[in-house]
Amino acid sequence: MAINKSENYILDFIQKSGGKGPQSRVSTLDQMEQVKRASLDQQPKHASVRRKSADDNLVMVICKHWRAFAISMVGGAILLACAKAGGEAIANTLHEANMLRSNSTYTDTVDAIKENKKYIPMTRDAVGETTWWLDTATAVNDVNTILEEGGDPLIVLGALADTLDDSFARDELNIIVTHTFGEDPDSLVQNFNPERYNEGIQDPDFKEDIRNYIIQQTEAEIARASIDTNNQLEAMFSSETVATDSDAKGMGGK
């Protein structure tokens, strides 16, 4: 995904959407200003560094603040850049399905939900499927692990929106997103772009943009892996050639 950092696109995006969004946008803007001031406006600091044990709850609260802050600040701008780049990739449904299946963060998140569904025996819903309930506490832990292991928060959010898109799964989606990102799913997504995603996490524009983003990320990962493989093959070929050359020279020398 091409991102032109020189355009200050994140701050631009936040400032443009700031006056139009819900109240939470104003507090996010205030918080961003505070963090920016503290990061930019002061002199170098001499710190003493030590390690200590901290309460798990405090660590969880601190991580949640940063995660909510970062995704609120950056997520919308990334998706907007993605939407501007065009949706050619998702024109092909088969390609889209392949790319989603190839993205490990996406599939891990879908699996985290699937594996924590507890089916209730001898029950059937209106269309004859066995009903289930979701162990949200374990699902939240599993989703947090995916994030802590480097999973892209936007892809996790997109996978949750896809997996829990039924109206009866609304409460479960609310619980998981609120415990993971520190904000309810609709407010979080509306904060990205109040005009474009006014319906919240199930807004069709959001779902299209985030799928487009996942496809682009997956294509980029596959391309990087392919380049690595080519480089390795090339290096192997070169070293074999060198070995062959030196062997030949060695033989010739005798």
Binding site: K45, S48, R50, R51
Partner: peptide
């Protein structure tokens, strides 16, 4: 409990 790194200043 989790072990964390602390930076102290100001």
């Amino acid at each position: 409990m989790t072990e964390v790194k602390i930076y102290s200043f100001d």
